[in-house]
Design a protein around this nucleic acid. Structure first.
Lengths: 158, 158
DNA sequence: CCTGTTCGGGTTATATAGTAACAGAACCCT
DNA sequence: AGGGTTCTGTTACTATATAACCCGAACAGG
């Protein structure tokens, strides 16, 4: 078993899916963007921009903060990754590559384990609906919602 | 009508409530902490730590980043203010001073207007419940939840 | 009284996160 | 060739947050 969110083969599949999604959207998954996406995907936990930068430098010695931030901005726009606001860190979007939410941010929630750092993405319709209703009740036109629960994951609780 | 979340009289009442809450909790609302709390409460919008620091310096010329961060940490612990993660900024807790959630963080959600910056705190039981259930379904022991919806407030939508 | 301990705060320096602004390369289009 | 657009390199900078150390006030125990 390889590291992180999946084996090398799984990661290749996710990269290929991202590739396809970008082609359909008419945007370019360049070498740099692909490298950064790969770094995010192979991490076990959310990685900060500077952690990514350090790793990126191994492949691309001249890399600087704008290098990685520009790639991250692109990947966020395409919905290929998410930002965990609470951690100032980035994770791969679990559903990326599926057409039903390709190319744009979908409603999602994070469960962040304070002990091991594992961050799980879920997409719970009841939460999404409750939030939309609560916003509407305040006359608020809801856009993107950041929902991040801190606590203890099943493994650490045991 | 004075500025911000309420008139000077309203603010005095909120400061007095905070004072009482701290006494009951056996902690000290010192002059510094009271000054920082007052600055947060009198702002119309969430204020960043360095914006607060600038204002604090008018009363306390020697103030430095740790000065304001330490006060903010205290106020957060006491549940007197909240941090808006999305904005790296702080707002007064609307319910502070009421015993039912004094001295600890309570479940709440923010509605952040992308146009005018108005940030409204709500505490919707349906959202809280849906989130707790979704977490439990993943075997996750939920702690504090960050819930921040970006969109357009009623005033700006009109 | 003095002595250790705790707490709040001052001070300096540094770490971490994110952006502005401009230059050059590669590509496409006519 | 000329002129746009997109992507990346590069330098410098701004913004956000914390570490580490010191000092004085308040207080408890002997």
């Amino acid at each position: 078993m390889a590291s992180g969110q999946g084996s090398a083969a799984v990661m290749e599949r996710r990269l290929a899916a991202a590739e396809g999604q970008c082609i359909r959207a008419g945007v370019q998954l360049t070498e740099l963007r692909r490298q950064v996406l790969a770094l995010v995907l192979q991490a076990e936990q959310p990685l900060g921009a500077y952690a990514l930068l350090d790793r990126l430098k191994e492949q691309r010695p001249g890399a600087a903060p704008p290098t990685v931030y520009r790639a991250l901005d692109f990947l966020l726009e395409q919905g290929l990754i998410h930002k965990v606001e609470r951690l100032n860190a980035f994770v791969g979007c679990v559903g990326a590559g599926h057409d039903h939410h390709a190319g744009h941010q979908h409603a999602h929630q994070f469960l962040i384990c304070g002990q091991c750092g594992q961050t799980t993405e879920i997409s719970d319709p009841a939460v999404t609906r409750a939030l939309a209703e609560a916003a509407a009740r305040s006359g608020f036109q809801a856009g993107h919602a950041v929902v991040e629960v801190e606590g203890r994951c099943a493994a650490c609780a045991a």
